[in-house]
Design a protein around this nucleic acid. Structure first.
Lengths: 340, 340
DNA sequence: TCGTACCAATGAAACGATTCAAATTTGCTG
DNA sequence: CAGCAAATTTGAATCGTTTCATTGGTACGA
């Protein structure tokens, strides 16, 4: 098999100059109909495919955008990725996806790789505190947008979701449906997202003089962690059962639900209302469909791409931080108590 | 900000020739210690990052491998992707990931993109019957390995999992734990995977003269579809309840489980045993931990990369099809009946 | 018939790396 | 210290595009 055809081969075959072939590819209306067709036919016959490396070398940058996420398996990120891909495709770019898996080493590898590839810019939900490495990128002139993390606006643009507002929404909804003694179930408050959601919930509870909020620490953000909290509640008995429970994420909520429905001690939502966070696919198909807080993942992905484009286009770096407000999704698990 | 430093800038700064800098980068031991250090220092001071496009243009191909999957959100593919990335990294390549989302158009876009990028090769779990497009790739000399789909060995290499064997394993396990009247719950048998799993289950049932297998059609592969099958079983009553149920995937099984445990009509595994397929993360943390069939996703991803490497290295194309055998994971949902 | 404008097409000069034959230096040996 | 081999360094040629100043044609008005 001989090597693939180049633009020069096409030019010879069509009997035109290389520049003309290039024009057919990039500025079709600079070329007369007759020659354009001739060139296109040659391209087809030779099976020519443009060599992007050469193009990139000449124009100085690629048409790709690097995107590094903490975990592609996480539904939140999967949704963001998909939205970003779509938005990028619309403006003629492609997304190179990297999964750091919460691992700083892998993250560093991807950053290096993407720099060698001369990506137009980088979207990243960084592992821990990596401002040093990101500063380096900035110095090298690689436009960067932080995803799901607020940034020092003097340095980076960023997109994030307002977790405080989400927490408020959830607690307010429990209060609005008549519950007064509430509980918050969440992992370590060292995680920024968890702390913010709790803070928002506290804010809502303060608005009602007769309302209270108990914090139930869970070890981790998993179904199993939720279940052990649920088991604990079952053991405590009905007297100490909160009227409404807000879990820092849907997995925890599902765990609590399992524990409660399995033992059949309490009914959801009659004895206790339950609301989660993230609105994962499983929420709607839980034993009792789970109310939740939905994050605007689509918007997040699309906006990230838009902010990046802004940075790429303009010379002088004006950074923006965009914060979205999450949305309440009401399902059966928090149905209002019928009047008694 | 001035443009990024090139190899020539480094050469000038270090007072050597460009060839020497290149050697430092690619063949460090061809260079004396003294100059190597000097060059490395210059690289550091100038913040030089190799331009991969130029490198690629010269050597004729990239160091990347294209990977197109049907759905990154699907845990099966997520696992395969991760394994492929790791295996590729080990041999110094990076993976470009594309998500076709079962959409032939997006798939075609990614194929074109990857060709322009001159990827070393392509791993793909194709949308429907796209042998034409793949034939074209083959003609153009892009080594390709099919993932999760058997291939005509004269044309492509492929990696897949033996779904017939998986079906056999599941049914055999139900039989081995003393169940005789079995049921298969699955989506349309037009899906190859579903048909194969059913066929394997039938094979196992035939081995026991007193065993039977009923097929319960589900519309789709979701939790909700499973739940409606479960509701139907509950309605039919205990007399017609199968002793063991094999679901074509874990989501279906979780749906059946929800329906059954929620209404508290039957107990799992005492009244009916339940086994799923895929061993998703949720299986272990279901209300009753779910037995399942685990596919060797890691091996799948790693082997796909290895097969691809083989094709890339060798001139003459010898294709291989590798089929893996899945593995039984026993949990509480199929616990053996205690002697009565 | 000439001048002017416009449109298409041309082809040489980059872009930044790798490669490799040739030039130079170094290290030994006698 | 000459002579030779091995080790190191050099730099021009090359990869396949895009870009853009230049050339060649054609049409139109004066």
């Amino acid at each position: 098999m001989n090597r693939t055809a180049s633009i020069k081969d096409v030019a010879t075959h069509a009997g035109v100059a290389v520049g003309t072939v290039s024009n057919v590819l990039n500025y079709p209306d600079r070329v007369s109909d007759r020659t354009r067709e001739r060139v296109l036919r040659s391209i087809d016959e030779l099976g020519f495919v443009r060599n992007d490396a050469a193009r990139q070398l000449r124009v100085g940058h690629s048409r790709t955008i690097g995107l590094i996420v903490l975990d592609v398996g996480n539904p939140f990120f999967t949704a963001v990725v998909r939205a970003a891909e779509d938005a990028a495709a619309l403006q003629g770019s492609a997304v190179l996806l990297g999964d750091s898996g919460h691992n700083a080493g892998r993250e560093a590898n991807y950053i290096d790789l993407f720099q060698e590839q001369r990506v137009q810019g980088l979207l990243i939900s960084p592992v821990g505190d990596v401002t040093d490495r990101l500063d380096l990128l900035r110095e090298r002139g690689v436009p960067t947008v932080l995803v799901d993390r607020l940034a020092d606006e003097s340095k980076f643009s960023s997109v994030a979701v307002d977790d405080d507002a989400g927490g408020y929404l959830a607690a307010r909804h429990l209060l609005d449906t008549g519950r007064r003694r509430l509980a918050f179930v969440g992992g370590p408050t060292s995680i920024r997202q968890v702390a913010d959601r709790l803070q928002g919930a506290r804010r809502a509870v303060k608005e009602e003089p007769d309302a209270s909020l108990e914090v139930l620490e869970a070890e981790g953000q998993t179904v199993l962690a939720g279940r052990s909290v649920g088991d604990m509640l079952v053991e405590r008995g009905r007297a100490e059962l909160p009227e409404g429970i807000f879990c820092a994420n849907d997995l925890l909520a599902l765990g609590v639900m399992q524990s409660v429905t399995m033992t059949h001690t309490f009914r959801i939502p009659e004895d206790v209302a339950l609301i989660g966070y993230d609105d994962i696919d499983f929420a709607v198909s839980a034993v009792v469909p789970l109310s939740s807080i939905r994050q605007p993942t689509q918007l997040l992905g699309r906006t990230a791409i838009e902010l990046l484009s802004e940075e790429v286009e303009s010379r002088n770096p004006v950074h923006r931080s965009v914060v979205f407000t999450p949305e309440l999704v009401v399902r059966q698990s928090t149905a209002a108590l019928s009047a008694r």
